[in-house]
Simulated assay, not measured.
Amino acid sequence: MPLSFRIIPERGLVVVEFAGYSGIDDFMRASAAYVAHPDYVAGQKQLVDMTRIAGFEKDYVRFMEIQAAKAERLAGAGVQSLCVYVAPTPIAKEIATLFTRTWADITNVVIMVQDTEAEALALLGQPEGSIDEMLRAAGVQT
């Protein structure tokens, strides 16, 4: 699956993973599944791993519509959320920049882009040096 997520409730964290080619419909399905998940909580920290993304659908209008709906949901929740992207490749950086730009005027979402998993995990207050290590420590199958 090009886009998946795992919620780690005890850490207040959701790990989102992109792999291969991701389309707008993949974003929509994953977003809907995330908010419908029983462990979803508004304001959860997000770690978005883009190390394995190979490409993405460049339908900017639909992308902006999805982001606007997410922004409205977060603004209505009245909580702040920290989202850190791991973007080590040019394609990953391109999509992370696109996400970052869509949140530029939203004060309750703090976005950071990092080159390495270790840097991203440190910003999120996680002691592990890699995502796999963190998932194992949290008892989540990798």
Score class of each variant (00 low, 15 high):
L3A: 00
L3C: 09
L3F: 07
S4Y: 00
E10R: 15
R11A: 08
L13H: 09
V15Q: 04
V16Y: 02
E17W: 04
F18V: 01
F18N: 10
A19G: 03
G20M: 05
I24N: 04
I24R: 04
D26H: 11
A30V: 15
A30E: 15
A30D: 15
A30G: 11
S31H: 06
A33R: 02
A33D: 09
Y34F: 15
V35I: 07
P38W: 12
G43V: 03
G43P: 08
Q44P: 00
Q44R: 13
D49E: 14
D49P: 03
D49H: 15
M50Q: 11
M50A: 08
T51W: 06
I53W: 00
A54I: 08
A54Y: 02
G55W: 05
G55A: 14
F56C: 02
Y60K: 12
Y60T: 08
V61L: 12
R62V: 04
M64W: 09
I66A: 02
Q67G: 04
Q67R: 05
A68Y: 01
E72S: 09
E72N: 05
R73H: 02
L74Y: 00
A75E: 14
G76M: 11
G76T: 12
G78E: 10
V79I: 06
S81L: 09
C83S: 14
V84G: 00
V86C: 10
P88I: 15
P88G: 01
P88A: 12
T89G: 02
T89K: 04
I91F: 02
E94R: 13
I95P: 01
A96E: 06
T100D: 07
R101M: 10
R101K: 12
T102E: 04
T102F: 05
W103T: 09
D105I: 07
N108A: 11
N108P: 13
N108D: 14
I111W: 13
I111T: 14
V113Q: 04
Q114V: 12
T116D: 00
E117T: 11
A118W: 08
A118N: 06
A120H: 09
L121N: 10
A122Y: 07
Q126E: 05
Q126W: 03
P127L: 07
G129Q: 11
I131M: 07
D132H: 07
E133G: 13
E133V: 11
M134Q: 02
L135F: 00
R136P: 04
A138T: 08
A138W: 14
G139S: 12
G139M: 11
Q141E: 15
T142E: 13
T142H: 01
